[in-house]
Design a protein around this nucleic acid. Structure first.
Lengths: 231, 231
DNA sequence: AAACTAGAACTGATGCATCAGTTGCGCAAT
DNA sequence: ATTGCGCAACTGATGCATCAGTTCTAGTTT
């Protein structure tokens, strides 16, 4: 008899805290820049401070929390620098992932991509669109057979989602990148890596411009910042 | 009076363990794939198991160690998959970093790059060359004003160094990539991002081919693996 | 009133004890 | 001899107590 009854199987306390805190930070239920009270969190989740500490260290590795030694934990603030860096990282790996996808993608991969693209047909708010976009780009990265690339993609979209959730009200109507996406999948299916890469580069450029404009409209970026970001 | 006398200033025990273990793993003083005895390490560094555990978690985040829950810590084995992924990540971010460097590099940045390139003039073994190459590429990433890109670059070169140290005997004479590097700095100085990116892409392709061939010669890659890696 | 200082309170870091899951060895039954 | 079961030792996970550094505050001094 295996005693996986008393406790949830292999879900450690720190894992639970990590997941919960991550979600709360992502959803901006915890204000960016706020300091976290480790003792309070421990009490809230009915564990000692140790797994809280473990979770904090993992969150710090994700860049979601900053550890100020002997001082406190701080939720990563949302800065223009972070937006710039994440968009820039996307620009770095996106075209490469597309190129590799064109090389390695199986018919099953392509079918999966088309399935995801089709989801754009349904009316979506910005949040749902972001989710679909995330799955689309992660799926492309998966085609590259490079786990690091997949992990980095996921991590970037996670952070991006948080920034968006903070800065953009989610009732805005989604744009229509569906055509770009279809063209990208076509290129991947045809095995045309350069075309795939350039479509992806263009796509990222567009979504970058959309974001920058949106952030500026909302007053999160000064004109100077926006100019340097739009290059 | 500040009491930074009794203890080394702000260097925590886990930091010490982390750095030490990282170095030992990097230098392959610890056999890849070996399991680590946490209790033994704690005893060796005269600390309890807690900071050892912290260090292990950080090493796991770096990908250098795998945590097998309730079972043990394992030093990441060196696999063809890892080599492939690291070289692929380099191919993804290198050209982009070069492009961004061409956009943002200051005259001081360019001077620093030239300083590093000049170091290739001295006779270097593969290990030293690797060090110079690391600094060169990290310096380029630094020009991008993207800290994430810099961190990723560093991390990739760290892992690459470990793989090389394991697989390649370091007495081999260094290649002569110096011309490529000079051309790259020229392109960056001229602000020609596309040229910089394509030179870097070519450079990475060359060093990839060099590595693949070398690994195959040493019997670390089967022909099939090498073929899929050379694409 | 302003500035400095001493100390109280808080926070993360560490050590140590204990809990729970995994592994593997050995004994027994077939 | 082989297979299966069970127990013992080991390992990481967690909790709890304590240590040490930081920060804020209140009191004193100038």
């Amino acid at each position: 008899m295996i005693s996986t009854q008393t406790h949830p199987p292999a879900v450690t306390a720190s894992e639970r805290i990590y997941t919960a805190l991550r979600q709360r930070i992502m959803r901006c239920e915890i204000t960016p820049g706020a300091t976290l009270d480790a003792a309070e969190i421990a009490q809230e989740y009915e564990v000692s401070k140790t797994p809280v500490r473990d979770a904090m260290q993992r969150l710090a590795a994700d860049g979601l929390v900053t550890i100020l030694p002997r001082s406190g934990y701080r939720v990563a603030p949302i800065t223009f620098q972070a937006v710039h860096e994440i968009l820039d990282m996307r620009a770095a790996i996106g075209p490469h992932a597309a190129r590799q996808a064109a090389r390695y993608a199986t018919p099953e991969d392509v079918a999966e991509l088309r399935r995801i693209v089709r989801e754009y047909d349904a009316p979506l708010d910005v949040g749902a669109m972001q989710q679909v976009a995330r799955r689309f780009h992660v799926a492309i990265a998966s085609c590259s057979r490079n786990r690091r690339l997949v992990a980095l993609s996921e991590s970037l979209f996670d952070e991006l989602e948080r920034l968006l959730r903070f800065a953009i009200d989610f009732t805005v109507k989604a744009g229509e990148h569906s055509d770009e996406h279809t063209a990208l999948v076509d290129a991947i299916e045809a095995g045309d890596g350069e075309r795939a890469a350039s479509i992806e580069a263009e796509h990222i450029k567009h979504s970058r411009e959309f974001l920058i404009e949106r952030l500026m409209t909302l007053g999160y970026l000064s004109q100077g910042e926006a100019r340097s970001a739009e290059r």
